[in-house]
Nucleic acid binder design. Structure first.
Length: 228
DNA sequence: ACGAACCAACTATTGCGTAA
DNA sequence: TTACGCAATAGTTGGTTCGT
């Protein structure tokens, strides 16, 4: 590991000492994917209940993430998930869409938080907040949020895999793996692909010119593909 | 323009427990 | 003792945007 920093509650403890009651960790997942929404989660952990094993979702196996997610949802004072879909990502860019998804998650929290610990960026909200670089590896609340967001998004991808089986989404989660690219090459993008991402745009363009070149090609088996 | 930040899967390499 | 295989770890790759 390049950065050995360990996940702790030091940021939370600081906030509690300063008099904050409900500190929410906020994180997002799915930025690099070619397909589907970016997902965010916000979690207010119970100060009196500690969950062993919480850390950066990237350090956990899928199995561990599932189990921890159950425990987090059960014991948290509040938790919520928000997202921004591919259309929004194409319109306002992935960075702004990530912020939007985070904001949606935070605004759904009930009771509302009085302090936010946000992973790496600053949100447009009238709530005190601390931005923490590599927060998912350093703050338990952000780590918990990263776990919920990841688990949630992965389950969406498994569902979409049933609708669009030609991209292996259950396996690659929408990320640009060889299998996903192959599907993109062959069938072009769906309505849920991020067309502003270069591999998606390239595939759409390639498919288009291929069809123009040979009218027969437009009758090749093509799945439920959005009108382009 | 370039480095740092975020996102994640894939692949190859180790290490360890257990079975033959 | 060897062989197999799963699990954890490290390195590579590939997506984007921000801030200096």
């Amino acid at each position: 590991m390049k950065r050995p920093s360990r996940c702790s509650r030091r940021f939370e403890s600081q906030g509690w000492r300063a008099g904050h009651q409900r500190i929410a960790g906020v994180d997002e997942v799915g930025r690099g994917a070619l397909f589907g929404p970016v997902a965010a989660a916000a979690v207010i952990l119970d100060p009196s209940h500690r969950i062993p094993g919480i850390q950066d979702s990237k350090q956990l196996s899928p199995r561990q993430r599932e189990e921890l997610a159950v425990e987090i949802r059960r014991s948290a004072l509040a938790w919520a998930v928000g997202s921004a879909d591919a259309e929004e990502i194409d319109r306002i860019n992935i960075y702004q869409a990530s912020r939007l998804a985070m904001r949606k998650a935070v605004l759904q929290l009930n009771p509302p938080p009085d302090l936010l610990l946000v992973d790496a960026l600053r949100l447009d909200l009238a709530i005190p907040q601390i931005s923490i670089v590599r927060g998912d590896a350093r703050s338990v609340s952000i780590a918990a949020a990263s776990i919920l967001a990841k688990v949630e998004r992965d389950s969406w991808m498994r569902e979409w895999d049933r609708i669009y089986p030609q991209y292996q989404l259950a396996q690659n989660k929408g990320y640009p793996t060889p299998a996903h690219r192959a599907g993109l090459e062959k069938y072009g993008p769906t309505a849920l692909h991020r067309r502003s991402y270069s591999p998606v745009a390239a595939a759409a363009l390639a498919l288009r010119s291929r069809r123009q070149a040979s009218p027969l090609a437009s009758h090749l088996p093509s799945p439920k593909i959005a009108e382009w």
